[in-house]
Simulated assay, not measured.
Amino acid sequence: MRHSLGLIVTFGALLLAAPSHAQTFDPRYPVCMHVYSGANGGGGEWYDCSFLSAPQCRATASGRAATCDLNPYYPVNVPASRPRYRRNG
């Protein structure tokens, strides 16, 4: 019983000590560049959300293993629909 309790406590401590990741997408910018470094760089892949437009992102991504995507966390200000009033007459 002691052995299994120690194993559970150790496993729980390992789960809590695992590194956590920060938010991937910066909500201040509408366009993100998804960079793939894969086997060549060994660094995996990441998002760079620092672009104000798709052409700006594409110019930076040119010649790299990267794509440009819209930021799903960018707040889009959609105007509210106007209420419709019925006319009598």
Rank of each mutant, 00 (worst) to 15 (best):
A61W: 01
Y36R: 10
F51T: 00
V35G: 00
A13V: 13
D26L: 07
M33R: 13
V76Y: 09
P30V: 03
A17S: 15
S50D: 03
Q23Y: 04
R84I: 10
H3T: 15
T60Q: 12
G43D: 05
A39G: 08
S37R: 04
S50H: 02
A59S: 15
P79M: 06
D69M: 12
L7F: 10
P55T: 03
S53A: 11
M33N: 01
Y85W: 12
D69L: 14
F11A: 15
P19H: 01
G43E: 09
P75R: 03
P19F: 00
I8S: 10
Y47R: 01
V78H: 04
Q56P: 00
G42A: 11
W46M: 08
S4D: 10
T67N: 11
R64G: 05
P55M: 07
P30M: 05
M33T: 02
Y85D: 07
G44W: 02
T60S: 11
A61L: 01
A18Q: 11
A66S: 12
L7M: 10
L52N: 14
C57K: 03
A18R: 08
Q23E: 14
P72A: 02
A18W: 01
G44M: 06
P75K: 02
D69N: 11
C32M: 08
H21G: 06
G43R: 05
S50C: 04
C32T: 14
C49I: 05
A61Q: 06
H3P: 01
L15M: 15
D69F: 09
S4F: 14
E45W: 11
P30A: 04
F51L: 02
L7A: 13
A80V: 09
H34K: 14
P79E: 07
G6Y: 11
Y74W: 13
S4C: 10
H21Y: 09
H34G: 06
H34Y: 13
S37P: 00
